[in-house]
Amino acid sequence: MSARIPSTGRRPPSVLGKRSRDLLVFLRDHTIVALVLLLCIFVFGIELIRPGTVTPTWLSNSLQFAAPLGILAAGQTLVMLTGGIDLSVASVATGAAYLLTTNVSLGGFAAVLIALAFGVIVGALNGIGVALLQVQPLVMTLGTGLMSGGVMIVYSQKMLASQARVPGFIQALGSGKLWGVAPLDLFLWVPLAALLIFGLSRTGFGRLLYAIGDNRLACHLTGIRVWRILLVNYILCSVVAAVGGLVLVGSTNAADLGLADVYLLPSVAAVIIGGTSIFGGRGGYGGSIVGAVILTVLTSLLTLLDVPEPIKQILYGAIILVLAAAYARLTG
């Protein structure tokens, strides 16, 4: 008979009390609450560092700045729900903005159409690769991103830069405010967000996005033509990215060929922090919105800290990692 041996379970007994464990469980099931709490902490931090900063105007400005990122993250959310990723969103946004400003002479409306058409083309290319030829989204979108970036460089060489101009209504959309408080871009972003949240939870298309992200083979065996949905989805993503580019150029009032580059990482990070699984099948746009706002507030927090640009960049990246890791721990 073997001797009595104490338990060999390696996990130490939980040091957390029951109440805090309950809280953790609650947060795991309602991650959006955790995100909003985090947002409040950041806002509080800003007020602590520089009292008097957090005013209605500041809030309104923050939302205005968050809109382009929020819109880019919308497209990214759609794609990531299906288990993909779109690394061409930044190039598409830049390209759309650049095409808009250089085609204003054709009329504002036509310029917007050209810009959106650019999104459709890149999105269709992504969609054909990913949906029909089953290329990995990462490489496909990286390739199309590189390609469309290159096309823009060539295009910029052929165009006379003096013609470039941001049309008035786009400028108003990107930087205007209604009665001085309500940012105009919210009037685009909020309906888009509502449409997306409704679409994801209450339409067949939304259901299918989750289903494909969860198990593409099961969808195929259930008689679903997966490629159709993916194709439409990648086009949607790129068009939304193009819209994001238009809002962005409205706020900067000038398009250069690096306009949206800085938005690539945040567009992915906002979705991840917002709780959408990169492997697909889980998440939603609600979280991405909060993620986008958190990242925007984080940027202004870092600006307030008054540190050099490189340090800001390092801190920003590090905080994204910490947030994503915390999220993975919480839900994993």
């Binding site: 990070a269 990246g317 994204i320 990692l321 994503a324 994993g332």
Partner: peptide, 29 residues
């Protein structure tokens, strides 16, 4: 970070790429 954080490698290296980019700028502007 990839192994310990359980964050997908794409996201980790996209982010660390951003961070190392900051480090490069820090060393030489």
């Amino acid at each position: 970070i990839v192994v310990l954080s359980r964050i997908p490698d794409v996201v980790v290296t996209l982010t660390t790429g951003f961070i190392w980019g900051g480090v490069a700028l820090l060393i030489m502007e």
